[in-house]
C-alpha cells in the first residue's frame, strides 16, 4: 500500500517528484537506485567546467608514479651491475615472440602448393596461322594471342600491363584496346596509348617433337628488359 501511495504522490505532483530527485537529502530515503542517481547528477555537472578537474586528474597520478619509480630499490642497483637489465631482456624476448608469431601468421597466408590450371599447352601447327593476322581463338581457353608475321610466330599474353584487364583485338583499327583504362597496344604488343607502362609480355614458344607449337606460360619475356631477342620468345617459320 505504501508503494502505491508513493506512486500516486509522484503522479499528482510531478514537480515535487522532480525536485526530490535533485535534492540530495531526500534521495537518501528512496531506493538503491538513488546512489546511482547521484553519480548521474555529478556527471551532469562536470562537463560544464571540463578543463579544471581534468587537468588536476592528469597531474595527480603522474606525480605519484614518478615518486614510486625513484624510491624503488629494484631498478637502480641492477642497472649499475649489468649492461642490460632484466627488463630489457624481457622486452626483447616479448618483441621477438610477438614478431615470430606475426611472421608465422604471415607465412600461413602463402601456401606451398597451388592448384592452378596447367600452364603449358599445344597450339596446333604453324601452318594453321595466317601471316599478318592475330589469332584470338585461344584467348578464352588459354589466355594467349598467337600472331604470325612474315618471319615469326609469337604468343602474346592477354593480360594488360596496366592493371591486368583483358584487352580486345580491334580488327578494324589494328590494335589491342584495353576496356578498363584505355591502354592501346600494337600488333607486336608495344604500348602506344593510354596508361599502360610497358608492352604486353610474350610467352615461351617452341616446336614440340610432333611438329606442333608448344607454349609455356610460366616463362615470360618482357620487351623493356630486352628479352624479346631471346630465341625462345618467338618461332622462326
Amino acid at each position: 500500500m505504501d508503494d502505491q501511495k508513493h506512486l500516486e504522490h509522484e503522479q499528482n505532483k510531478p514537480e515535487d517528484a522532480e525536485r526530490s530527485t535533485e535534492n540530495p537529502e531526500e534521495m537518501k530515503q528512496s531506493e538503491e537506485n538513488s546512489t546511482e542517481m547521484k553519480i548521474a547528477e555529478k556527471k551532469e555537472i562536470e562537463p560544464k567546467k571540463p578543463e579544471v578537474p581534468k587537468k588536476k586528474l592528469e597531474k595527480g597520478p603522474t606525480k605519484k608514479r614518478a615518486s614510486i619509480g625513484k624510491g624503488s630499490i629494484l631498478v637502480e642497483p641492477i642497472k649499475r651491475r649489468s649492461f642490460f637489465s632484466w627488463l630489457t631482456l624481457a622486452w626483447v624476448a616479448f618483441t621477438a615472440a610477438t614478431g615470430t608469431f606475426f611472421g608465422m601468421m604471415l607465412r600461413f597466408m602463402f601456401p606451398n602448393v597451388l592448384f592452378e590450371p596447367k600452364q603449358t599447352f599445344k597450339a596446333g601447327y604453324p601452318d594453321d596461322y595466317t601471316i599478318g593476322e592475330v589469332t584470338t581463338s585461344l584467348k578464352e581457353k588459354y589466355g594467349v594471342w598467337i600472331i604470325r608475321d612474315t618471319e615469326h610466330i609469337y604468343a602474346l599474353s592477354v593480360v594488360c600491363t596496366h592493371l591486368g584487364c583483358t584487352p580486345n583485338w580491334l580488327q578494324n583499327e589494328r590494335k589491342f584496346k584495353c576496356p578498363c583504362h584505355g591502354s592501346g597496344f600494337r600488333k607486336s604488343g608495344i604500348n602506344f596509348e593510354g596508361p599502360a607502362p610497358r608492352p604486353l609480355e610474350r610467352y615461351k614458344i617452341v616446336l614440340a617433337d610432333d611438329g606442333q607449337i608448344l607454349i609455356d606460360k610460366t616463362k615470360k619475356f618482357a620487351y623493356e628488359k630486352g628479352q624479346w631477342s631471346d630465341s625462345e620468345s618467338y618461332l622462326v617459320v
Binding site: K139, E140, G143, V158, C165, T166, N168, C178, P179, C180
Partner: peptide, 10 residues
Amino acid sequence: ANPTLSPNPA
C-alpha cells in the same frame, strides 16, 4: 565471371 573477357567498359 569469365576471366578472359573484360566487359567494355569495365
